[in-house]
């Protein structure tokens, strides 16, 4: 039970429509993801801990501001509607990819319109996937590889840090294990170091 909670991927879903928020929330939960929903791009950035002044005016940012590392919950993927009033899904994608601290989070865009130029623009800007609305259960399987990739990269970074500190002969094997997939031990270590989610 505890391990299941800890290894669950956490998805941040962004949509201005209450109907679509409820739908995506159920789709993701049925697919065993942990879900947070917000109704706008700016609330998504707020949840991710990106301060508006991070890019606009770095000199005024105070040292106590939240960084994603200090966030309560790690986000493994952002799935956002394209067409929203104010900040569009495309604007949100750009903000995430421009941010040094957030750029590694995979972003998936959803849209009701099949416009090739729009799809290409999003993919060029770094979106992992473009889903046509209405989103279905089968679409949820397409999210997992992007999250595994993201988690693999995090683990590699941790492995490298560990190697610098401790050059043991077994470190080569450890790296191989990490490349093959997430191990429960790794995930537990990661979560307990920076979140309050650990339920042991």
């Amino acid at each position: 039970m505890a391990i299941a909670t800890e290894t669950q991927f956490h998805v941040l879903a962004v949509d201005d429509s209450i109907i679509d928020r409820k739908l995506i929330e159920r789709l993701l939960k049925t697919s065993s993801y942990q879900v947070t929903t917000v109704d706008s791009g700016s609330k998504a950035l707020e949840f991710l801990g990106l301060q508006q002044d991070e890019q606009v005016d770095s000199s005024s940012s105070d040292s106590s501001s939240t960084t994603p590392e200090q966030n309560e919950i790690e986000v493994n993927l952002v799935i956002t509607d394209y067409c929203m009033p104010g900040m569009t899904g495309y604007d949100l994608l750009k903000k995430i990819k421009e941010s040094q601290s957030l750029k590694d989070i995979p972003v998936v865009i959803m849209s009701s319109e099949n416009v090739p130029s729009r799809i290409n623009r999003c993919l060029e800007e770094g979106a992992e996937e473009f889903l046509l609305k209405p989103v279905k259960l089968s679409d949820m399987n397409r999210l997992r590889p992007h999250m595994l990739k993201g988690r693999g990269r995090d683990q590699k970074q941790q492995q490298e840090e560990n190697q610098e500190q401790n050059q043991s002969p077994s470190s080569g094997n450890k790296r191989k294990a990490a490349d093959e997939g997430p191990s429960p031990e790794r995930t537990r270590a990661r979560y307990s170091s920076n979140s309050s989610l650990t339920v042991l």
């Binding site: 109907i19 739908l23 049925t30 279905k136 259960l137």
Partner: peptide, 27 residues
């Protein structure tokens, strides 16, 4: 798509379809 909604309804969410459809009515 309505079938998708029905598939998302289970014991833990017995009123999911009625709930989201009611939101649809209001909207």
């Amino acid at each position: 798509q309505f079938n998708q909604l029905l598939q998302l309804q289970d014991e833990s969410n017995p009123n999911f379809v009625a709930e989201v459809v009611t939101d649809f009515f209001h909207d």
